[in-house]
């Protein structure tokens, strides 16, 4: 069959217009998919807001923010003061940071300033494995290994306490602090280090006086991100910290965090529409705000105060 020139042009044009449609349609499709992530955020905020507002039609906002007693399960006269849950959450976070900050930074400095290429290639993947252990396994480890271990040091330590989940949460965030800090330290150019070495500085002096000041914003932002993860950690505290809302810094007692309260309620049968049901959203909102502020802060610190070489 012979195709005339005219037909061929026509065919090409049809093909081209099809191609043009695709060229125009694909970016739109991808744009819609990308926008979905914003929809997810809006969904989270909408969900939390709607149910939290419902909660505050039952309980006054003032009582929630200022109350120092959290007894939602009392039949008559339940009290919803957020402070015991906040103090539980921060007890865990403080213990975790006491473990994770020195150890995480020490490993970061070792890996970035002291370790040979070979030992770095061995050590880093091991730390990555530590980061990949599921939190529920960490929880089991805290309950059945760290708590008995701690009981040999601290007499009268109850099975459920803040100390051992706090330590294990700290262990969980070590790899994150290490790898983010090390990344920041790597961004300090070798030439700056070499300059200091040429003046006769030891590795320690280079690390403390050159590398850490040069990567300070990155290090601080990694610590804030670690703190935010410690606050949001759920399974370790649900497994090993018990469920006793306790006001004050009480590492050797059973406590309850915001996350473990949410889990406790969702595991039980809180009737849909009851005050207890809405309370998990109010607690979730508080948790969300705390972690959001920290993430924004971490982002801001690493952007704004970064040393540019």
């Amino acid at each position: 069959m012979k195709i005339t020139i005219r037909e061929r042009i026509k065919k090409n044009k049809a093909k081209q217009s099809y191609q043009n449609t695709i060229e125009k349609a694909m970016p739109l499709l991808f744009f819609l998919m990308a926008s979905l992530s914003i929809l997810v955020t809006l969904g989270i905020i909408y969900t939390l807001l709607r149910e939290t507002i419902m909660f505050f039609t039952h309980i006054s906002l003032f009582d929630f923010i200022t109350g120092t007693e959290w007894y939602p399960f009392f039949e008559n006269n339940p009290s919803y003061g957020i402070w015991p849950l906040l103090s539980g959450t921060f007890t865990i976070a403080i213990i975790a940071m006491l473990v994770a900050v020195p150890i995480g930074l020490a490993s970061a400095i070792y890996l970035s300033e002291y370790a040979s290429d070979r030992s770095r290639r061995i050590l880093k993947p091991i730390l990555e494995v530590l980061a990949g252990v599921p939190t529920v396994v960490y929880g089991l480890f805290a309950l059945t290994f760290v708590t008995p271990l701690m009981q040999t040091f601290v007499t009268d330590l109850p099975i459920f306490n803040a100390l051992s989940p706090g330590i294990v949460v700290g262990i969980m965030i070590i790899p994150q602090i290490t790898s983010l800090s090390q990344e920041a330290m790597n961004a300090v150019p070798q030439s700056v280090r070499d300059g200091a070495y040429a003046l006769g500085a030891t590795r320690l002096e280079v690390a403390l006086k050159i590398v850490i000041p040069g990567s300070f914003s990155g290090i601080v932002s990694s610590l804030v991100l670690g703190l935010s993860r410690a606050i949001g950690e759920t399974m370790i505290v649900s497994t090993a910290a018990g469920s006793t809302p306790n006001l004050g810094f009480t590492p050797t007692e059973s406590i309850q965090t915001m996350t473990s309260y949410i889990v406790q309620v969702s595991m039980g049968d809180a009737t849909f529409g009851s005050t207890i049901y809405y309370s998990i959203y109010a607690v979730g909102m508080t948790l969300f705000l705390f972690t959001l502020i920290m993430n924004i802060l971490a982002n801001h610190i690493s952007r704004k105060y970064r040393e540019v070489y």
Binding site: T47, L48, G232, I280, L287
Partner: peptide, 18 residues
Amino acid sequence: ANLAGVPSVVFGLLGLTV
């Protein structure tokens, strides 16, 4: 970046509601 930092239990609340 911020979504990556939202605690998974909050994602659970989203799933539960939506």
